[in-house]
Write a protein that binds this DNA or RNA. Structure first.
Length: 495
RNA sequence: GGCGCAUUCGUCUAGUGGCCUAGGACACCGCCCUCUCAAGGCGGAGAUCACGGGUUCGAGCCCCGUAUGCGCCA
């Protein structure tokens, strides 16, 4: 494909009716990657003509999600640009102008049918097995009839006068030529009775005015495309290159929705996912580079992304794989960087008010201990709460499993004794002290370390024991062992 | 209802007529490492390439039909 790199212009055009969803994020990503790969421009346009559902909050939410993902735009809200404004509701004059032109050329006409009438006719047509589309009755209205309607006070919508013969071909970069018979394209509405343009119309006018060269969007728009092409042609505008992306589905193969769990970028952020991991995962949902590579930095993606490697098949969104990938990205972080990300999570959980309350050094050690054990940042809470809590509870089942062994009393006693004697309470000394216990008591290592772990952390699963004990410190460690001993004795007394 | 798109391991995918007894990744199972859990290493299982026809010396790959799913008109 010959591409004039400098001139490539693509856009992401969300409707601000809600937060940025995974599907939208992927569309934005592919557009952004394509622009960055070719050194073109990435434009953000807000399609807010549906006034009843569009909100300022949604616009800000989408913008902040895009920023968080690192998908920056060259033109659009906040940054401006020479093809603005970038909100459709501020571009009404563009649409009016185009409508006037089409009406004058008789390629559009006024339709006085009310929504109620249309709905009724649609139902009727369906009932009798006929196509439910608009029948085109207002297309042949005489001037007198129009005048009568106007006098009746009827409002009119503007419809496109679709050619009734021939075919329109959509050349899609990944699906090839898709042919539509013009007869099946009804006279669709350009401007509603309320004066606002429809999606198909506004998008074409704006894409042309903004000199968009490539349109990359979901396949759900594929059947809208012939209508749009007809509009480009009617207005003498050059038709952009189309790429229709496969859908993203939920685990049951149905369209992604709330019941599949998190579906918005915001939620993933809150759950402790990293932007790089989300981008990497999304890039691979419908695109691949070769048969081996899975991990791509943003820079890799920019270098390697091409439209011809996009697949046609819809993809099921797999949270498990995203989690795995997020874990990979967490492991790639420096300890300092990871700690910076973890601190607000600990603070939110109420473990401490500011890092110095617990000690930066300790937090750094803890971070290093959990780095390869968490898939999401928020996983850290469950794994580290015992460090911060003054008192830990040992759940009865855990106690039953680990503390019921007859050797436990001896083990805990020995551990307490040895740790108490330590002058330098660091990992090395703690390890040496505890490692001597199995041989001395002639007990398997596991039967020594597990009870100590449970005593000290309250859990059977924890970060590495010796390091953990160092961070906890002598006082807390000894106290927790004592408490466990008491509990054990009680059990023995009762048992 | 019409039109359109899609269909390779459970999931994401590689595959553009002979390199495919179908490759990789996640998940799963086993072993190694090991104080638990992870991480890491090694290995295993898992796909009659939706189905049925055709074209061809040869088809996952090309053509036709069917089924299923999804989308648009809404």
């Amino acid at each position: 494909m010959i591409v004039l790199s400098k001139k490539i212009r693509v856009r992401f055009a969300p409707s601000p009716t809600g937060v940025l969803h995974i599907g939208g994020a992927r569309t934005a990503l592919y557009n952004w990657l394509f622009a960055r790969h070719h050194g073109g421009k990435f434009i953000l346009r807000i399609e807010d003509t549906d006034r009843s559902r569009s909100t300022e909050e949604a616009t800000s939410a989408i913008i902040s999600s895009l920023k968080w993902l690192g998908l920056d735009w060259d033109e659009g809200p906040e940054v401006g640009g020479s093809y603005g404004p970038y909100h459709q509701t501020e571009r009404l004059s563009f649409y009016e102008e185009a409508v006037a032109e089409l009406l004058k050329a008789r390629m559009a006409y006024k339709c006085y049918c009310s929504p109620e009438e249309l709905e009724e006719r649609r139902k009727l047509a369906l009932k009798s097995g006929k196509p439910p589309g608009y029948d085109g009755r207002c297309r042949k209205l005489t001037e007198k009839e129009q005048k009568d309607y106007e006098e009746e006070g009827r409002k009119c919508a503007i419809r496109f006068a679709c050619p009734k013969e021939g075919e329109t071909i959509v050349s899609d970069t990944i699906r090839g030529d898709v042919v539509f018979q013009n007869t099946v394209l009804e006279d669709f509405i350009l401007v509603r009775a309320n004066g606002l343009p429809t999606y198909n119309f506004a998008a074409v006018i704006d894409d042309a005015a903004m000199k968009i060269t490539h349109i990359i969007r979901g396949v759900d728009h594929l059947t809208n495309t012939p209508k749009q092409i007809l509009l480009y042609e009617a207005l003498g505008l050059s038709v952009p290159v189309f790429t229709h992306l496969p859908m993203i589905l939920g685990s049951d193969g149905k369209p992604l929705s709330k019941r599949h769990g998190a579906t918005s970028v915001e939620e993933y952020k809150k759950d402790g996912y990293l932007p790089g991991a989300i981008l990497n995962y999304l890039a691979l949902l419908g695109w691949s580079y070769d048969e081996k590579t899975t991990i791509f930095s943003v820079q890799d993606l920019i270098e390697k992304f091409t439209l011809d490697k996009i697949t046609k098949n819809p993809a099921i969104f797999d949270n498990i794989k995203l989690q795995w990938m997020n874990g990979c990205y967490i492991r790639e972080l420096s300890v300092d960087k990871l700690m910076d990300l973890l601190i607000p999570i600990w603070v939110d959980a109420g473990f401490f008010a500011k890092p110095s309350d617990f000690g930066i050094g300790n937090l750094k050690t803890i971070t290093a201990l959990v780095q390869e054990r968490i898939k999401c940042l928020t996983d850290v809470l469950e794994l580290t709460d015992f460090f911060f809590k003054e008192e830990i509870g040992i759940d009865p089942k855990t106690a039953d499993k680990v503390l019921k062994n007859p050797e436990v009393s001896k083990v805990l006693e020995a551990a307490h004794e040895k740790l108490k004697e330590l002058e330098k309470f660091d990992t090395e000394n703690v390890e040496a002290a505890l490692r001597s216990i199995p041989a001395e008591l002639d007990v398997k290592p596991k039967l020594v370390f597990q009870p100590i772990r449970v005593a000290v952390t309250g859990r059977t699963v924890s970060p590495p024991l010796f390091e953990t004990i160092e961070v906890l410190g002598k006082e807390k460690t000894l106290k927790r062992i004592e408490l466990a001993q008491e509990a054990t004795e009680e059990r023995e007394g009762n048992g």
